[in-house]
C-alpha cells in the first residue's frame, strides 16, 4: 500500500492519499532502535555474567570445569528462560497499550496497526532466535566462553541443537509477546476489566484441561513428545493474535 501521488489538482480527490501500511507501523514499533535491538543483547550478556558468578561459587565449592557434575549443573541452568520473558512480556504489552493510541493519533488504521504489530513481534522473535544462534556458535567456537560457561548450550534451549534452539527461542519469544499484546489489547478495549476477564478465562480453560487430563496423567506423560510444546506455543500465538485483532478491531482510543 503506497500513497497515491497521481492527484495533482487541488480538488476533492487529493484529500485521501492512502493509509499508513503495516510496514509503517513496524517502523513506529522499532523507532527506539537501542531499546528494541540492544536490550536483548544486554540482557543475555547479563545472564552470561551472572552465570559466571554462579560458576565462580561452584568453583570455590570445589567443582571443576569439564567434570560431569559441572557440565550437568551448568546445562540445567535455565537462566535464559527467566531473563528474556520479562523483557519480552513488557515489550508485548508496551507495543499495544501505549503504541496503539499513538498510532491512531498518527493516522494508522486499526487493521494496519494489528498487522504491523504482529509483524514486529515476528521480527523481534526472529532477531532473538538469530542472536541465540550466533551466541551458540560463539559458545561452541570458544569452548564454552573459554572458562566453561553455558549460556545457549543448555537443556531448555535444546541442549546445543541449533534447530531446537532457534525453534524454542522464536516460538517462545513470539508466544510471550503475543500474550502480552493480547492482554494489553483487552486493556485498551475494556480498561481494567479487560485483562482481568482475559486472565480469568485463560485460568478456567487451563483448569478445565487439567481436570480432564488428570485421570490420564501418566498416560499423557508417557506419550509426551517434544513437538507438543511447539504445537502448544503455536496455538497460544494463534489465539493471542486472534484475540488482539478482535479486541482492537472496534477499540476506541481513550
Amino acid at each position: 500500500m503506497t500513497a497515491s501521488t497521481h492527484d495533482l489538482a487541488p480538488t476533492a480527490t487529493h484529500r485521501l492519499p492512502g493509509a499508513p501500511s503495516a510496514l509503517d507501523v513496524v517502523h513506529l514499533q522499532t523507532a527506539k532502535r537501542f531499546m528494541t535491538f540492544a536490550v536483548p543483547l544486554l540482557t543475555l550478556a547479563l545472564v552470561l555474567a551472572i552465570s559466571g558468578v554462579v560458576a565462580g561459587v561452584f568453583y570455590q565449592l570445589g567443582s571443576r570445569p569439564g567434570t560431569e557434575e559441572w557440565v550437568a549443573n551448568s546445562r540445567n541452568n535455565p537462566g535464559v528462560l527467566w531473563a528474556l520473558p520479562g523483557f519480552l512480556g513488557y515489550y508485548g504489552v508496551q507495543s499495544v497499550a501505549t503504541t496503539f493510541p499513538l498510532a491512531l493519533t498518527l493516522g494508522a488504521g486499526r487493521r494496519a496497526f494489528t498487522a504491523g504489530t504482529l509483524l514486529f513481534h515476528g521480527l523481534l522473535s526472529a532477531y532473538i532466535a538469530l542472536v541465540g544462534l550466533v551466541l551458540l556458535g560463539v559458545e561452541k567456537a570458544t569452548d564454552q566462553w573459554f572458562v566453561g560457561l553455558y549460556l545457549m548450550d543448555v537443556v531448555v534451549l535444546g541442549g546445543g541443537d541449533p534447530l531446537r534452539l532457534v525453534t524454542v527461542l522464536f516460538l517462545g519469544s513470539l508466544a510471550v509477546m503475543s500474550a502480552g499484546a493480547a492482554f494489553a489489547a483487552a486493556w485498551v478495549r475494556f480498561a481494567a476489566r479487560g485483562p482481568m476477564a482475559l486472565a480469568l478465562g485463560t485460568l478456567l480453560v487451563l483448569a478445565a484441561a487439567a481436570l480432564l487430563l488428570a485421570s490420564q496423567a501418566s498416560a499423557v506423560a508417557d506419550a509426551f513428545q517434544l513437538w507438543w510444546l511447539a504445537a502448544a506455543a503455536v496455538v497460544v500465538i494463534a489465539l493471542a493474535c486472534a484475540a488482539e485483532h478482535l479486541l482492537l478491531r472496534r477499540a476506541s482510543v481513550r
Binding site: P20, A97, T98, T105, G107, A108
Partner: peptide, 21 residues
C-alpha cells in the same frame, strides 16, 4: 475507512506515548 483515519490528525490533550519515546 483507513485512508480517512489517516486524513485526520488529532493529538489528544492526554495523548499517550510509548515509554522512553
Amino acid at each position: 475507512h483507513a485512508p480517512t483515519t489517516s486524513a485526520v490528525s488529532f493529538v489528544r490533550d492526554d495523548q499517550r506515548y510509548p515509554d522512553d519515546f
